[in-house]
Amino acid sequence: MKHLTQCTLAVVAALALTLGATTAAQAAGKLSIYHWFEYIPQELLDKFAAQHDVEVVMDTYDSNEAMLATLKAGALGEYDVAVPGDYMVAILIQEGMLDPIADGERKNMGNIKASFASPSYDPGWKHSIPYQGGTTSFAVDTAQYSGDINTTDILFNPPAELRGKINMLDSQGEVLTMAALHLGIPQCSQDRSQLEAVNDLLQNAKQHWASFNSDTAKEVLVSGDVTVGMIYDGFGAKARSEKASLQYAFPKQGWVNWMDNVVLLKDAPNRANAILFMDFLLEPENIAAVTNYARYVDAVKGSEAFRDPDLASQPESNPPAGISGAFIETCDQATQEVYDRIWTAVKK
């Protein structure tokens, strides 16, 4: 009995040592992921865990801002990787919350498609790798509404039959960018009359909105709680697979473009595993598993071979030619404070 206890102690001590040895090149131990909700298939995490003999743990968030807040409130040093959107990568770099990765540390960087060679928010992919890209607009239940859906009037100036039947994403960035597109004004405008116009627009439209919800954006559409719901394209495709009458809109005024990225966080407790995870996600077969699950678009050469054949032709991934979306811009502090006041006024 005594021997057994000693044996156990030795094993535990050895395990603790391995876990503590974060700089070890050999992958053993743990990987902590901070990720969007419903975005990566569990099987893929299991595959990584088996391949590299690590324990994978994941927590989820429902907006870029919520992720930033958690990291700022002391979670830095707890997670290895996170999956921020384009503008949030820029903010995280500015805040010094990412760990730069030296050239050659990641083996699979050559797999990134040429068109994604160097994004403006992280030139040369020094802190991140591309994960999934897509758009944000809204979906409409065409069984309930037969009018033209490809206009932002649906959200901000809805026809009578859609009033009180609209779910908005609980995300300041996306709602205010859509509002700017609707009004045809630049994002982060400092022009007072334009900011007042945004404020008036939202104050007026609010009475027609039923709810603000991000993580139930798909469910409220499928269940019929609402007829119109702001949603991401791939999430909208999933919603359509559960309710065929849902149609994703490409408003003529534009929509929100975004690119999510896997970043290496500062003070990552398992840095080596995080690098392995990035290489893992740059392999065509693995990233295609994410793409098939989340139904967006990835940026890895050769992943098409592993993608579901119907993905390329799904309507949500094929915006009409001639109109385009806009990436969310990061405003300066003074403008952001006005945006915050507008947002609080919407929800007061």
Partner: peptide, 18 residues
Amino acid sequence: GAKNFMIGSLIEEQFKGN
């Protein structure tokens, strides 16, 4: 529907919202 802030959600928004 999170349309109107309550004390709880107002405070939560200050810490983890926009």
